[in-house]
């Protein structure tokens, strides 16, 4: 099949970017979207052009490194998948596919389709851990955790940190990302001791990084590759409320 990729090219952070069209043939429906970009890059190399910079690593939807805006949707036309799980069979021969980097002030563009998501790391650094040193753990079964609580913690903990929630949010809010981590740790007994400080510090960092407000549009949970529920944000709000009073 043949597709036209309309791709955002930007040499570096300060440069002015623009869309460039690439008509690519010899594609097959089995190819993944990222493999099509690989294929395009090989063509570009042979034409002596600089390749399109885009991110990926595991290519099985778990590392969270890939992620671009494809035809107006974060991670492409399907819900709850990551970019690496998108295949060309989702497009029609002759289609034009518009590919843009994540857009958010807190995710500045590094080059072409690559953005800097280190803001997420800094949110994590501000409390997304249990302050226990290696070697100090009690016997694992000494901490009993009900199945329902463990399951809910796991639902939230599944976040892969890809940034699709921020990308798709009209306000570039990082509420879903932050909430998922807070709820994972704060709902478990191990995380309770630092619960208030954690929610205060992490949400403060979220503000400092320049993310916007949550308007509960719900777009984030639709684009989230792990389908993390937006209810997590409401739960975080409750936890923050409590922390602000008690913490």
């Amino acid at each position: 099949m043949q597709l036209t990729f309309r791709i955002w090219r930007q040499e570096q952070a300060q440069a002015k970017g623009s869309f460039k069209d690439y008509k690519v043939g010899e594609l097959t429906e089995d190819m993944s979207f990222l493999e099509a970009l690989d294929h395009l890059n090989e063509i570009l190399v042979l034409q002596d052009e600089s390749v399109i910079a885009f991110e990926y690593d595991c290519r099985e939807g778990i590392c969270g490194q890939c992620g671009v805006f494809i035809n107006g949707r974060a991670h492409g036309p399907h819900s709850n998948i990551s970019t690496c799980q998108l295949h060309l069979r989702s497009f029609k021969d002759g289609d034009t596919i518009v590919v843009e980097p994540w857009r958010a002030k807190a995710f500045p563009i590094i080059k072409d389709l690559i953005v800097d998501r280190s803001a997420f790391d800094r949110i994590i650094e501000n409390g997304a851990y249990i302050s226990a040193k290696t070697g100090t753990a009690p016997e694992a079964n000494a901490i009993l955790i009900g199945k329902a609580i463990a399951d809910r913690a796991m639902d939230a903990a599944a976040c892969i940190g890809c940034g699709a929630c921020v990308a798709t949010c009209k306000n570039s809010s990082a509420a879903l990302f932050t909430a998922a981590k807070i709820n994972h740790l704060n709902s478990l007994p191990q995380g309770k001791l630092e619960a208030h400080q954690r929610v205060l510090d992490m949400t403060t960092q979220m503000e400092v990084e320049g993310f916007g407000h949550c308007s509960f549009t719900g777009a984030c949970e639709v684009e989230c590759p792990e389908g993390i529920s937006i209810t997590n944000i409401a739960e975080m709000n409750a936890r923050l409320f409590k922390a602000q009073i008690l913490g």
């Binding site: 226990a132 463990a150 399951d151 796991m154």
Partner: peptide, 22 residues
């Protein structure tokens, strides 16, 4: 064995029985 203790303490949501054990 101590490694499982460690990860549990660090908040890994390992699968649990209804009674709360791993």
């Amino acid at each position: 064995a101590p490694l499982i203790d460690h990860f549990t303490q660090q908040g890994v949501p390992f699968a649990r029985e209804y009674g709360g054990v791993l």
